[in-house]
Structure formats: structure tokens, C-alpha cells
Amino acid sequence: HAATELTPEQAAALKPYDRIVITGRFNAIGDAVSAVSRRADEEGAASFYVVDTSEFGNSGNWRVVADVYKA
């Protein structure tokens, strides 16, 4: 099962156990969220919340930071 994305309210009520950072070329924010979901799932997380997204220069590469939560 894939890790689910939390709302800001849900994330605020929970304590993350880790923070992950992924970088890559994403065509849309949805693609980045899917990549975070896969990584969170690999780490055994039940859910995640994207904290920050930023573009690296003009290369089209993105850096996505997310907190991950157990259950």
C-alpha cells in the first residue's frame, strides 16, 4: 500500500519520525508527490507531508522535502 499524503492540519497533529529529500525532474507537482509517496513507502512510512518544493536553477530539476510519519 502506498503512503498517503496528509493535509496541513493532519501533519500538524502528528510528529514526523524522519524527513526525506528527493531531487529529480518532475513535469508537475503531482509527479513529485508520487515520487515522495514511493520513497516514503519504501521507508515503511504510513503517510507523508510535503514541507517544501524548490526548483534548482532553470534546469527543470526539483528538490522536494517531506516529513514522513509511521501511523
Rank of each mutant, 00 (worst) to 15 (best):
T53S: 12
V50R: 02
A40N: 03
V51Q: 03
S47R: 05
G44T: 03
A11Y: 05
D41N: 15
T23Y: 14
R19P: 00
K15G: 03
L14V: 06
D18W: 10
E43A: 14
N61M: 15
H1N: 09
R19I: 07
K70R: 12
A28R: 11
P16I: 03
P8M: 13
N61G: 09
A12V: 08
I29H: 09
E9T: 09
V51I: 12
N61Y: 15
I20K: 00
W62E: 02
A3K: 03
D52E: 15
L14A: 07
R25D: 05
A71C: 12
D31N: 05
Y49Q: 02
T4Q: 12
Q10K: 06
T7D: 06
E5F: 06
A28E: 10
E43V: 15
N27H: 12
E9V: 08
L14M: 13
A32W: 10
G57A: 08
F56R: 05
D52L: 13
A12E: 08
K15H: 09
F48T: 00
P16M: 04
Y17N: 03
V33Y: 10
R19G: 00
Y49R: 06
A28N: 15
I22A: 01
A35R: 04
S34F: 10
N61S: 10
T7A: 07
D52V: 12
T4E: 09
V65F: 05
V36N: 01
G57F: 07
P8F: 14
V68S: 00
T23D: 05
S37Y: 04
K70N: 09
A35Y: 07
K70Q: 08
E43Q: 12
E43Y: 15
T23R: 07
A12T: 08
Y17A: 01
S34D: 13
F26I: 02
R25M: 11
A13V: 13
E42G: 06
R38L: 10
N58E: 14
R25I: 11
N58Y: 09
A46E: 13
R38M: 09
G24E: 02
R63W: 08
F26E: 00
T23M: 11
T7E: 04
D31Y: 04
N27M: 12
A71L: 10
N61I: 15
R63L: 12
Y69S: 01
H1W: 08
F26N: 00
S34Q: 14
G57Y: 06
V50T: 01
T23C: 14
V21Q: 05
S37P: 03
D67K: 03
T23E: 12
V51C: 05
V21K: 02
I29D: 04
V65K: 02
A11S: 05
S34I: 14
D18V: 09
R38T: 07
W62C: 08
N58Q: 12
R63D: 02
E42I: 10
E9F: 10
V50M: 07
F26W: 10
P16G: 02
A13K: 14
I20D: 00
S37E: 05
P8E: 12
S54D: 07
R38N: 06
W62H: 03
Y49C: 07
E42N: 06
A66H: 01
V65N: 01
L6F: 04
Y69P: 01
A12K: 12
V68Q: 00
S54I: 15
G60Y: 04
S47W: 15
A66K: 00
T7K: 07
G44H: 06
D18E: 08
L14Q: 12
A46I: 11
A28K: 12
I29P: 10
R39C: 10
E55S: 09
A13F: 12
Y49L: 08
D31I: 10
T23N: 06
T53M: 15
V64W: 03
A13R: 14
S37T: 07
W62V: 06
E55M: 11
F56C: 11
A28L: 08
D52M: 13
T7P: 04
R39V: 10
A40S: 03
S47I: 04
Y49E: 01
E5A: 10
Y17D: 03
V36D: 01
R63S: 07
S37L: 09
S54Q: 15
V65L: 05
D41P: 02
V64I: 14
T53Y: 15
A11D: 03
A2K: 14
N61P: 04
A32R: 04
R19W: 05
T7M: 05
A32K: 04
V65A: 04
L14P: 01
